[in-house]
Nucleic acid binder design. Structure first.
Length: 553
RNA sequence: GCCCUCGUAGCUCAGACGGAUAGAGCAAGAGACUUCUAAUCUCUAGGUCGCAGGUUCGAAUCCUGCCGGGGGCGCCA
């Protein structure tokens, strides 16, 4: 019996009990929650329902809990129901009812953990969107790992997710990039406000290889050559490194296209006419103060040129026209000031501001010898996605970036992380999967068939560690659901660590394959199925994080 | 100055919607390998949940005010 089924049973029981005593059942919440108590003495599951509704029902919590316990204890699925503390109801499941979780996992297989929370919802998920003036740095790498995982998690809840990367390839930073390329090609120093680093020189020389006479062209033409080829090479580089990081996008959107297509102009005209922008001091303004901004923001400058934010508005309009119901943005903490502007932009176009959701993540700090390391774009001392992958590999890099809440800053210590210590919990989780895979191989080589889901007596799984493991498996669907609801992929990682622990503990206490036992008993079959269910959930969870589930290590 | 965010064990961090004695990993100490993979497991030690009030049966969690770290406050992009 799954936690969800148990919660439903508690609720229907509460309805019966209350109405039998003449108490108004409308005091009951829509959904009852059952949680797993930390202390095993408090049962397999516990509910605080009686305390929640006791006052409103006019019944003492302990008394109400007692009524529930009496009724629930008569169910076959429940082995015990006790009142504790101020009105907790502690429940234990009968072994065979609990074992049904294993059957559920094996039946749904890859689908176990999925849900329909966002069935059919069209979601645009924009993340990374780093400027195409250099390689992806550590901060962008974090968004790549977290955003990709979030996309997978939302899809697991039925959402139709489009992953999108916005290239800011219009404006001054591209000019600076081009100037840096030209300077490098001419062997000059990095210009003021320019970009340094080996990649600039590499791209510059590649431009020269393709257009050997580029430096002899008139300045405007020369810059255009470096812009066209150099920025293109940078795009390719970014896409390639992200792809190798297993983060692929459905759409790479170019800011420049919004300007060249006239979309920005068209959008601005429309907003001016509809009165969504107001004219003052020679400029056109967006009412971002209505969404908590310090001041309204200029959209069209007094010289008639669009401000940067105009591109954002036109881009949002483009997303809306493509039919997205929810636009998610993942931005670094240094961009949190964008939230009111984006909300205001949505409102200006007549959309619900809640259709725009901005997730703010803390930055990644680089540490060496316990001291913070300053990274400088100009000096080219930025640590990149590729540096990190080279040091620890894709799995460890992704996992270590996704297992923390984005609300907390992450320190990356290069000395530590390049040691290949197993301090990284990804190995712990992957090892559990490898162990389980090995176990299934061994069973197969011994000629032991695991059997179908109806061929095991899962009620034999009565060992304490077996119960813990099964109940942990049962948590997976609600972990995925809450990760999706809260946009917090790290919950899946933390869960996997908990599941791996439960499995390793089980493995330590419960022998699965009996040596010399060519006639596997029913307990062996039941345990094999439990193991396969565990392997399946580990694989499903790792898949949501974009981390591999190795067959052996 | 205003806004956002964080503050939990020596270190890195979990603890959404208020629940029972606040957890994990690493580091420290002591144990368990003729192994179904020891990248594992068991035990010990480690805490003023930044501080002070408030809300209530109950607060790490919610509210207010301080303290401290990080970030943001352009007709730049």
């Amino acid at each position: 019996m799954t936690p969800a089924a148990l919660a439903e049973l508690v609720r229907t029981t509460a309805v019966d009990v209350l109405s039998a005593r003449g108490v108004d059942t409308s005091v009951l919440p829509e959904t009852v929650t059952v949680e797993r108590p930390r202390n095993p003495e408090h049962g397999d599951y516990a509910t605080n329902l009686a305390m929640q509704v006791g006052k409103r029902a006019g019944v003492a919590p302990r008394e109400l809990a007692g009524w529930l316990a009496e009724s629930l204890a008569q169910r076959d699925e429940i082995s015990s129901a006790e009142v504790a503390g101020p009105g907790f109801l502690n429940l234990r499941l009968a072994a065979d009812a609990q074992g049904a979780i294993v059957r559920d996992v094996l039946t749904r297989a890859e689908e176990f953990g999925s849900g329909d929370l966002y069935a059919g919802l069209r979601v645009n998920l924009e993340f990374v969107s780093a400027n195409p003036t250099g390689p992806i740095h550590l901060g962008g790498t974090r968004w790549a790992a977290v955003g990709d995982a979030l996309g997978r998690i939302l899809r697991a809840q039925g959402a139709e997710v489009t992953r999108e990367y916005y290239f800011n390839d219009a404006g001054a930073q591209i000019d600076r990039f081009v100037r840096s390329l030209v300077a490098a090609a001419r062997g000059e120093e990095v210009p003021e406000d320019g970009y340094g680093g080996a990649y600039v020189a590499e791209i510059a020389s590649e431009v020269l290889r393709r257009e050997p006479g580029a430096l002899d062209l008139p300045e405007a033409e020369r810059d255009e050559v470096f812009r066209r080829i150099g920025v293109g090479l940078m795009f390719d580089e970014i896409k390639r490194s992200l792809h190798e990081f297993r983060t692929d996008f459905d759409v790479f959107f170019h800011e420049d296209s919004l300007h060249s297509s006239g979309a920005v102009t068209e959008c601005l005209e429309q907003l001016k006419e509809s009165g969504s922008l107001y004219h003052a001091e020679g400029a056109w303004w967006l009412r971002s103060t209505e969404f908590g901004d310090d001041k309204d923001r200029v959209v069209v400058k007094s010289d008639g040129a669009p401000a940067y934010i105009a591109g954002d508005i036109a881009y949002l309009r483009d997303k809306r026209e493509r039919g997205f119901q929810l636009c998610l943005y993942m931005l670094g903490a240094d961009h949190h000031g964008y939230i009111p502007r984006l909300k205001a932009a949505a409102a200006a176009m007549g959309d619900d501001p809640d259709s725009v959701e901005v997730l703010i993540g803390q930055l990644v700090n680089l540490v060496r010898h316990g001291e913070p390391v300053r990274m400088s774009k100009r000096a080219g001392t930025v640590v990149t996605l590729e540096d990190l992958v080279e040091a620890v590999g894709v799995d460890a890099a992704r996992y270590s970036l996704v297992r923390s809440s984005v609300d907390s800053p992450v320190d990356i210590d290069l000395d530590l992380i390049s040691k290949h210590t197993n301090e990284n919990p990804v190995f712990y989780v992957q090892y559990a999967h490898a162990r389980l895979s090995s176990l299934q191989r061994n069973a197969a080589s011994l000629g032991i068939a695991r059997g179908g889901v109806t061929e095991a007596d899962l009620g034999l799984l009565t060992h304490e560690r077996e119960g813990d493991l099964i109940r942990t498996l049962g948590e997976f669907p609600r972990v995925v659901r809450s990760a999706a609801e809260l946009r917090e992929p790290h919950r899946v990682a933390r869960y996997l660590e908990e599941l791996a622990t439960a499995y390793h503990r089980f493995y330590d206490s419960c022998r699965v394959l009996q040596p010399g036992d060519d006639q596997p008993g029913p307990l062996t079959i039941a345990r094999l199925q439990l193991c396969e269910a565990t392997r399946q959930v580990l694989a499903n969870g790792l898949s949501l994080l974009g981390v591999s589930a190795p067959q052996q290590m």
